[in-house]
Computed example of a mutant assay.
Amino acid sequence: MAAFNLSPFDPSSFFLTGIPGLEAAHVWISIPFSVFYIISLLGNFMVLFVVSKEQTLHKPMHLLLCMLAITDIGMSTSVVPKALCIFWFNLTSITVGGCLTQMFFLHAISAMQSALLVTMAFDRYIAICNPLRYATILTNSRIAKLGLVGLIRAVLVVLPLPLLLSRQPFCANRIIPNTYCDHIAVAKISCGDTTVNGMYALVVGLVCTGLDLTLIALSYILIIRALFRISSKKIHQKALNTCTAHIFVMLMFYPPFIFSSLTHRYGQGIAPHIHIMLANLYFVAPPMLNPIIYGAKTKELRDKVCKYSYRR
């Protein structure tokens, strides 16, 4: 606590508290965090390694899985190492530049992952509704271009957030009650007028998330409509198996993301430690589970992973 009594007057740093109210349990909380992080790294690097090594996996769907693995690694790595430093060593200080950089990567990677989920929904739509033209419509180069468009969009819409905050004055209270630098949390400790920051963040969140969810919903409506025209239960089961992994990944991404965004703005009645714990789980649980889900539901990938896992 002595560090917090002196640290707020350092003009070059912010201070992350960890999980307010649970400081005594930080070491115990760090155990599942570190385990989830290690499993996440192993799973996602395994996906990248196997797909890069196996020529038969150089297909659009597996290229999308590699992009998803990269965003998962980036998302968890942006949060977990600093959180563990807080939990284990009480290293709460973070430079203003480091805080704004972390903020940029967190929000840009989330925006990029949302764009990837849209591309995956489009991939599933083509695979089910227009399978004969799948190979000509979705080539590897076209998937790479769609990924690049998603990356450019993420950078362009997120970059103004840290740039706007970098122009704000910050007073003596530089304590952020969190394990990472979220845009709203940093904006709240500014002495200046952050109306523009808040409005921009709200509009970007609503427009980008709303647009992506609309496109995903449209893809699945078209898939369901196409399946209703086919009476074969075997084809219905195959289509369901094809989409299950994507649906699970979306359910792990969008609800926690929307919940975290809303509670930052309107969740004054929610206990801070509950909100922050759930927000941190958003950065460690999906990156850990995504490669497991796709490994279980994608036979080609599962077989190749088993091949390398049991190789002697």
Rank of each mutant, 00 (worst) to 15 (best):
M1C: 03
F4N: 03
G18C: 01
V27Q: 11
F33M: 12
V35P: 00
L41C: 10
G43A: 13
L48D: 08
P60L: 07
L63M: 13
L64C: 10
I73S: 02
I73V: 12
A83Q: 07
F89E: 10
L91E: 14
I94N: 00
T95L: 05
L100P: 07
Q102K: 10
L106Q: 13
L106A: 04
A115F: 07
M120N: 04
M120E: 08
F122M: 06
A127M: 05
C129F: 07
P131I: 00
Y134R: 13
A135P: 00
T136R: 09
T139M: 02
R142V: 10
K145F: 09
V157I: 15
P162D: 03
L164C: 08
R174P: 02
I176K: 02
Y180A: 09
A185K: 10
A187H: 04
K188S: 14
C191Q: 09
V196K: 07
Y200I: 12
V203I: 15
V204I: 15
G205I: 04
C208D: 14
G210V: 07
L218W: 06
R225Q: 12
A226I: 00
T242K: 02
C243S: 01
H246V: 09
F248W: 11
V249K: 04
L251M: 14
Y254M: 01
F259V: 10
S260R: 04
S260N: 13
T263R: 03
T263W: 05
Y266N: 08
Q268M: 08
P272G: 02
M277C: 08
V284H: 00
V284N: 01
T298G: 00
T298S: 04
L301C: 06
K304M: 10
R311C: 14
R312F: 13
